[in-house]
Each structure stands twice: as structure tokens, then as C-alpha cells.
Design a binder for these strands. Structure first.
Lengths: 230, 230
DNA sequence: AGCGACGAAATCGTATACGATCAGTCTCGC
DNA sequence: GCGAGACTGATCGTATACGATTTCGTCGCT
């Protein structure tokens, strides 16, 4: 699992992590959603979760509401909580927004990238290229996240980075669905990564970098839309 | 008060609004923060709020945590909740992010704007110009929000609109602070509005629209940075 | 007078309890 | 046989209670 920006408060690695129970519940459910164990539509029963985690419903409730505000959970009064579904419209909203924030984040980070960082990113992209042969959406997605995570490592704006992270979490929820895979998209994605790395290495204008990075994400969306249209 | 996008679930105006207590608490505190009654650093005591609203601490807690995830409240374990402060760095993060999402939202909405909408926006901008004489930051800010709210009325991506709304809420918290006002900025802001309206009326490319709208917000940030630098 | 340690008050974190609301089912009448 | 209404079980929403932690004032010591 690759994690770029945790939403935790203390970024200091003091060791003694005093996380509250609600924090524990939050991470527990988030990880399940990210990994796909809790797929779209999965029903979350507060009391059951509370039992599972050896805590009462109050902290669980808090965690669920937090996930709700990140659009990962849909919570209906007196009905229950389910992992948010993924109709095409929501997919479009999410991908558009992600394209926006990823593009900007890439541009913000571009001037801060050392050659060594670019080399690591190239290496990851190389691994992706190798995996094109025996394609597995899950590992491919992980590598894709790793690739962009390298570019965002020194992001000077944590708010933007947080939005990127939320978008990724949201996509994680629908990773294993039919939306995730469009034939031929993976190979083009690898090629676009190379183009982006070339532009970064050449020290291109940040406007151009942002355009490239945004289009990279939008291309996936458009590929899906075209695929769904046929 | 101008509200563009409520975060409510039911956008249907069925009339019978069955809002939970936690929802009530959320709106109560949010409105206080937006309006400036609860300024940066204001201390929120859960039990006191609960008394004020005739409810127990549990729903209040929920509301506070929700506001925390929107960066409006800072909540520290066993210490308490305070309205999030506004150091220059946070201001930069917020304004950068807002420039990003406002710019994109403007571009998304541009093709959907009718001449009548532009006329209304011009009217609001006219009111702003009039108020330049006897400048009042509070009403000026409200008019500014109204101006952009008109442009965003038919926004096709609610996620982006939500991010804009969150940014505005966050700025509301620091409206009455020294950060909000930089001499001469208001007049330039009105001029930029006109330029943006001209571009919209001319049917300019969405890329250009986005660039203009983004720069409009960034200009405020840069004016502040320059002002603070002296 | 300044500084450190102790104690009490305030506040948060969570458990438990109970009322409210909804979905599904079962029965009764047509 | 089929539909309407009531009932039951499940689940959520909130109140209350209590333990844990921090903060702040006070007292004693140097």
C-alpha cells in the first residue's frame, strides 16, 4: 500500500501514537474501502463495526461521518451507511476534480524535483511497462499511485495534496469495478508518464506541466466514456 | 447572506425539513464562523454549545468533527476545539486552492451562461464599483461572493462547487481580520471582474477563461503577500 | 520574589441505555 | 388469490454517566 499524505494531525514520528478509538475506526474502514474489501454498496452496520473493533458505537459513528464528508460513505437517516456507489456521473465528477488537483499538484511540485526523484519515477514507470504483459489492475493501480506519489513528495501545498489523496481514496472504492479497466488504456498511460517525465526533466513551463498532468487523468476519463458509449 | 451550494443531502424542496440535531449544530456553528461572530482562535466548549442548543454533547461533537474535516475547526485531544487560525501560510494554502477550484468552476460554467446571467453579474459588479467610495469590507465581500455565485449557478460538477464553497467558508472565518484588506485591491478586483465578463461575453476559450479567473484570485493573494512584505 | 510541585476544576473520550424510525413480514379481509 | 394494514425486528439518534487527561491556580520552598 502506498500512502502519500496521511490526514493525521501529528506528522512527527514521535513513536508513541496515541490514536483515539474513533481514529482507529476511521483508518480501519478507510483501509477496507481503499483495498476494495468493502466494495460499492457494502452495508456498514454501526453496532456490528463497534463489536468488530471492541468499542462502542459512538466513536464508530464519528468515523463514519468523517468518511461521509469525504464522499466515501453514504449515510441515510435511520436507514444505514453504505459505501458510496459509483454511477457514471459520480465517476465523471471525481475524475474531473482529480484531474484538476493532480494537474496543479504536479505543477507545484515540478520545480522541486531532483534528478534522483525523476529517476525513481522512471523506474516505477518501467515496472508498469513490464506488467503490461500480464496485466493485473490491482498491482497496476498501486504502481500508478506510487509513480504520482513520488512526484508529489515535496508538495508545497498540503491542502492540494489532501484533495489528491481524497480523490485517490475515492477511486480506490471503485478500483475492482468495471469502471477501472478500459482496454488499451494502461499502455497509453505508461506512455503519458514518459512524456510527463520528459517535460519535467526538460524543465518545461509549469503551465505546460499542469496541462500534461491534467490531460493524463482526463484521458482515462475520456477513454472510459468512449468505451461506455459503444 | 449568499449561499450557492449547500452541503445538504436533499436538494429537493419538499418543505418538511427533518434535520437532525447534529445537522442543526453544524449549521449553527458554520454560520457563526462564516459571519465572523466566532473569529479565529475562538474557543468552542462542547458542553457549553450543547446547552446553548438544548441538546447533548454527542451531536455537537459530530458537528465539530465535521467542521474539523473542512479545516474550519481545530480539535485537539483533551484540550478542546477552536476556530482554525489564519497564519500567512494557511492563508496561502487556502487562496491557492481556491484560485484553482474557482478558476476551473468558472471555466466549466462559462458555456452555460446566458446573456441574462452576465447582465446580472455586471449589475452586481456595478454595485461593487459604487461601494468603492465608502468601502466596507463586509458588504464588499458579500457582493463579491454574489458575483461569483451567479457565474457558478449552473455548475455541472457539484464536487468542484463544493470545494469552492468550502474555500469561501474558510475565508469567511478570516474576513474581519487584517488579512482580508489590502489597500487598492478592491478597485482592481472590480476591474478584473469586468475583464472576466468581457471574456465570457466574447465566448473566449475555456482555457483563457480559467486562466483569467484563477489569476483574479491569485492577484488578491499576491497583493497581500506584497503588502505583508513591506 | 521567583520557581517548582501539588491539587482541584474543567473538559474531553467513550460506554451504556433508551426512544424513534424504518424495512420486511405476517395476517386479515375482499 | 391479492392487496392493505398492523406488527416485529433491526438500526439509527440522542441523553446520561463516568473515567481519563489536561489546565490552571495555589502553596511551599529556595
Amino acid at each position: 500500500m502506498i500512502v502519500v499524505a496521511t490526514t493525521e494531525k501529528s506528522s512527527v514520528a514521535t513513536g508513541a501514537e496515541t490514536s483515539s478509538k474513533s481514529e482507529t475506526a476511521y483508518r480501519y474502514v478507510l483501509e477496507r474501502i481503499r483495498s476494495g474489501s468493502y466494495g460499492p454498496g457494502y452495508r456498514l452496520v454501526l453496532s456490528r463495526l463497534a463489536d468488530e473493533l471492541n468499542m462502542s458505537v459512538v466513536p464508530v459513528r464519528e468515523a463514519i461521518r468523517r468518511l461521509e464528508s469525504e464522499r466515501l460513505i453514504t449515510f441515510e437517516r435511520n436507514v444505514g451507511a453504505t459505501v458510496t456507489g459509483i454511477d457514471p456521473t459520480e465517476y465523471l465528477y471525481t475524475m474531473q476534480t482529480l484531474a484538476l488537483v493532480e494537474g496543479y499538484a504536479t505543477a507545484l511540485c515540478a520545480p522541486l524535483l531532483a534528478p534522483a526523484d525523476l529517476a525513481r519515477a522512471r523506474d516505477v514507470n518501467g515496472q508498469m511497462r513490464v506488467r503490461l504483459a500480464d496485466f493485473d489492475p490491482r498491482t497496476f493501480t498501486e504502481l500508478n499511485l506510487a509513480f504520482h506519489a513520488i512526484l508529489f513528495e515535496n508538495c508545497p501545498n498540503p491542502h492540494v495534496l489532501d484533495l489528491v489523496q481524497r480523490g485517490w481514496n475515492r477511486l480506490g472504492a471503485l478500483r475492482s469495478s468495471t469502471f477501472a479497466y478500459v482496454p488499451g488504456r494502461a499502455a497509453r498511460s505508461v506512455a503519458e508518464h514518459d512524456a510527463l517525465l520528459d517535460a519535467l526533466a526538460a524543465g518545461d513551463d509549469v503551465v505546460e506541466i499542469e496541462r500534461l498532468a491534467r490531460r493524463h487523468r482526463l484521458a482515462t476519463l475520456e477513454a472510459y466514456l468512449a468505451h461506455a458509449g459503444t
